[in-house]
Design a protein around this nucleic acid. Structure first.
Lengths: 211, 211
DNA sequence: TAATTAGATGACTGAGCAGTCATAAAATTG
DNA sequence: CAATTTTATGACTGCTCAGTCATCTAATTA
């Protein structure tokens, strides 16, 4: 029997309250411009209280990042697995991510800035983040593998292709948030799906090769 | 007659010396982790001297960013213009950028982190940076326009496609720097060129459309 | 060479902020 | 309702660092 003690309940509540608030503040101002007091204020508690639940500002950041990424991955995984065909799996990947980030734009800002700072970040943060990305990459690679086995795809380098899909999707979302995009999300997503699908599937012309 | 005075020569020399040093330090540690003293030390001068030539840390950063971007754009523009066909122009775009950044990896780190922090940055930095990107986008759009007019391309949304090409190229470079890539730069570049070219050119199958 | 100007320096200042801790409030217990 | 423990608070501390400025050095001029 795992009955949660009052302490556990409170602790969980506070942690979640804090990391939710942190997500919003970090999204708006970035890691360095955010003060711990900002977070405390957004969470409606005092700074000291915050330190009862997190050891440092960095830990709060990591918690917010981790939480968002786990939720995202879970959703994407579900949708991709539910899709019947390789084509639909890829489409699901792009669409689900787009939708999730449109619903959680504040988290996307953190996620995106993490990518930008990946070179400068301290080793531990970087490692954590990288591990999550590799998970995603493997999922995509799995889908592509399946497509290759079914003879749908022309000979492509699967890891690189997975990276491209990953990056294009992320970049699409960033652009939509940056320039308040007038076009419908679904249109944009369908367009880049189309581009990629045409790029990788089998019946493309060989005209393009130079040699 | 524009004869440079001694003051002008010295001033230019110091500015360049400082922004060169700044580029290296900012690349290694990112904007916030870099101290002005770090830069001064890297440039071999005292902190006070640095403030004789730049009004603030931010100005130094902007100078380094600007310098790198201008050099990059010039190179890319030249190579793209020199290429005879649309296909070669696109290839030149990807290859030239890749080569430039491999030769100036320290600048790429700044450039890349700028993208990551584009949401959090103060308005003036962001505006500057955005303007540069729009320039690049227009160049790519021009090339795509040409391709469309020649009937090479299937009906695509040109601005979005330009974004995709831009983003894929940048992401490719980032990945090459992040995981010390074992593959040859040219192979990677050719691969993504191929992917994109197949994705946009005319003779692709219509099988992919769902409706 | 003495006087004057231009350029360089780094100790110093003031502001900002992460993290602490003595104290207060609230909850629990007996 | 005390006594005790658990949770909350925000003033405080120590440190970092951008930007300044009195002072020094080198160059220029007369």
């Amino acid at each position: 029997m795992f009955v949660k003690t009052k302490q556990e309940v409170l602790s969980e509540f506070r942690c979640s309250q804090i990391s939710q608030a942190a997500r919003k503040v970090f999204a708006k101002k970035g890691f360095d411009e955010t003060t711990v007091e900002d977070i405390a204020h957004a969470a409606g508690i005092a700074k000291g209280t915050l330190y009862l639940y997190f050891r440092s500002k960095k830990k709060i950041y990591l918690a917010a990042l981790r939480e968002g990424i786990l939720a995202l991955h879970e959703k994407v995984q579900q949708e991709v697995e539910a899709a019947p065909s390789v084509e639909d799996k890829l489409r699901a990947y792009i669409f689900t991510k787009l939708r999730y980030f449109e619903e959680n734009w504040d988290f996307f800002r953190i996620y995106h800035s993490e990518w930008g700072n990946v070179f400068a970040r301290s080793a531990d943060v970087q490692k954590n983040f990288k591990r999550y990305q590799e998970q995603q990459a493997r999922m995509l690679e799995g889908v592509l593998q399946e497509g290759a086995q079914q003879g749908l795809l022309r000979p492509i380098h699967i890891p690189t292709t997975a990276s491209v899909i990953y990056d294009v999707t992320r970049a699409l979302i960033a652009r939509r948030l940056l320039e308040e995009s007038q076009s419908k999300a679904e249109e944009d997503a369908e367009f880049i799906f189309d581009l990629i699908w045409n790029g990788i599937c089998h019946f493309s012309p060989s005209l393009s090769r130079k040699t």
